[in-house]
Every structure is written in C-alpha cells, then in structure tokens.
Design a protein around this nucleic acid. Structure first.
Length: 200
DNA sequence: TAGGCCATCTGGTCCT
DNA sequence: AGGACCAGATGGCCTA
C-alpha cells in the first residue's frame, strides 16, 4: 500500500466538505468553488465535463469485449434518467459506488496475493508485480500440466479412478493444448523464475 | 528524472 | 433499478 487513500481523501473532501448544498454547487463551472483537484464530474447543460484532467474517456475502442457499440440512445436516456435524481442523491450514489469499487479492487488484490503465495518463486525480498504473478502462474500451471501428463501414462488404470471419463477428457484437452502451443512450459517457467530472481 | 507500478475515481455497459 | 464489471485517467511512490 503505497498511496492508500490519497485520491479517496481528496474525493471525500470534495463531496462532503465542499458545500452543504451540492444541488447548487454541481451546476457551476468546474473548479470555480470546489477544491482544486476534485475528481467529481459536473454537468454543464447536457454534457459531463471532467474535473481532474481535460480529457475524459470516450468509448471509441469498442469497450471491453466489444460492448461499446451503438451508445447514442443509451447514453442519452441514461443521462436523462440520472437527471431525475438530485445532485445530493447522485453524490451519495457515487460515494457508495466508489466504496464498492474499492472493496472489489481489494478483493481482487487479495486474490492476487493468494496467487503469489500459491506459486513458488525464488525472489522473496520483493513482491511480485501483478503482471509477473499472472505470467508466472500461467507458466507454472503449464509446467505442472506437463509433469502430470508425463506421469499419467503409468498410473491411469481406471479402476482406482472414480471419474475416469472426466479425467480422460481433461487429459485429452491438455494434450491438445500442449500440441497446439509447441510446449516448452517447464523450461520457460524455470527461465522465468531465474530472470525474476535476477531482478529483471 | 523518467518509467513502472499501483490505488483510486469515474462513467458507460452488462447482468440479475 | 441497482450492483458488478470494465477501462481510461490521474497522481503518488519507488527505483534505476
């Protein structure tokens, strides 16, 4: 936790301390009376203006997973809907939403931490970054898969396996994947551990 | 000081 | 309708 609460503190101030009557406040020019650096967006006429920077994202990239197309009507109607509630209510919802998002991200980080602890790596003085964790985990799984597949020839008797059909399907799937990906996972994983260990 | 990583805010979209 | 999810934006901290 390097910068915990830095933005949230600012935002909380902007929402809760700026003015007892946000209905009036939020209709004014950004930065005119609220604290500098507040991240709340304000509505000017029919458009939403960014508080913090001059830029605001416009979903031109098609959004995550291609969800961004055909937004005009949806956006307009959702804005209309938003206008029904008072600025104060919007503020409350925004704060609640921020809190939920924070909790969600904390859960995500907890999951990352659990993953860090689940995968063996040499370097313990420095925490694995998220991207390192994901990459290492992927290659670790592949390495384990390789090992299991290597062992599987001798131990697949079927009699002592309660769900042989499932195991067999899984095995086929793994074999297929390994074939497709020209697998060098074990050596890759070891190389990666080595490179992380070097501090790269 | 630049660049990497991260936490947080935010608004749009999806899902229940 | 409201919460979850997503991704862009921003700024702080740290390290080479």
């Amino acid at each position: 936790m390097k910068s915990k609460g830095k933005a949230s503190k600012r935002s909380q101030q902007a929402w809760s301390e700026s003015d007892p009557d946000p209905d009036l406040q939020l209709e004014t020019e950004p930065g005119s009376s609220e604290q500098e650096g507040s991240e709340a967006s304000v509505q000017l006429g029919d458009s939403w203006r960014p508080r913090r920077g001059e830029r605001r994202r416009v979903r031109s990239d098609g959004g995550g997973g291609g969800e961004g197309g055909g937004l005009g009507v949806t956006r307009a109607s959702s804005r209309r809907r938003r206008q029904h509630s008072s600025a104060k209510e919007r503020n409350v919802r925004r704060l609640e939403s921020n809190e939920r998002e924070r909790q969600r991200m904390h859960k995500l980080n907890n999951a990352f931490q659990a993953l860090r602890e689940a995968i063996p790596h040499v370097r313990t003085d420095k925490k694995l970054s998220k991207i390192e964790t994901l990459t290492l985990a992927k290659n670790y799984i592949k390495a384990l898969t390789t090992i299991i597949l290597g062992m599987s020839g001798g131990c697949r008797t079927g009699a002592d396996c309660p769900d042989e059909a499932t195991a067999s399907r899984l095995l086929q799937c793994c074999q297929q994947r390994l074939k497709e990906e020209d697998d060098e996972s074990l050596s890759k994983y070891l190389t990666q551990i080595h490179s992380f260990n070097q501090g790269s």
